[in-house]
């Protein structure tokens, strides 16, 4: 019975680790790729560590607590490193495939937002022609 439970935990962990790395390989831009390793791989390794803890606790006398230490450390550090990586990517202005969200509070029919749209559209046209341009121009 314990063997089947351990096998289930090990297979779950390995599959989640695999899916996380598959996401790292297949997804389109960096911000999407960040999701795979930070969530799926952490869960997979956590499952493997639980399997290891159960295995060594059942084999040896006493409870094996090394794995809990590693699990805790991984679960604390994974979000921190993901946050730092996202900050570095934003700092480097990496390209994102995500669409710009629509402002539902001020739809396009509104006069003010049309002016806003014109003001926001103008610098992007200038950005295409020259790299150095003032980010916002007052209309």
């Amino acid at each position: 019975m314990l063997e089947y439970f351990l096998s289930l935990l090990i297979l779950t962990g390995a599959i989640f680790t695999f899916i996380g790395s598959l996401g790292l390989l297949r997804l389109k831009d960096f911000y999407m790729r960040l999701h795979g390793p930070t969530k799926a791989t952490t869960l997979g390794v956590g499952s493997l560590l639980i399997a290891s803890a159960v295995f060594f606790s059942s084999r040896d006398a006493g409870v094996s607590l090394h794995e809990v230490l590693i699990t805790l450390f991984l679960f604390i550090t994974a979000p921190v490193s993901a946050h730092l990586l996202a900050k570095a990517a934003l700092h480097l202005n990496l390209h994102s495939h995500a669409k710009i969200p629509v402002n539902s509070a001020h739809p396009v029919e509104d006069k003010d937002s049309e002016i806003d749209g014109a003001r926001l559209a103008a610098p992007t046209k200038e950005n295409n022609s020259s790299d150095i341009s003032p980010p916002h121009k007052s209309v």
Binding site: L24, P37, L74, A89
Partner: peptide
């Protein structure tokens, strides 16, 4: 394609190395 991608790959590699060591 970018440097953060490579850092993310290294990050995932060490987590995978922990998984391999556990196994």
């Amino acid at each position: 394609p970018s440097t953060p991608d490579r850092i993310l790959a290294l990050d995932t590699l060490y987590v995978n190395a922990i998984a391999l060591l556990m196994l």
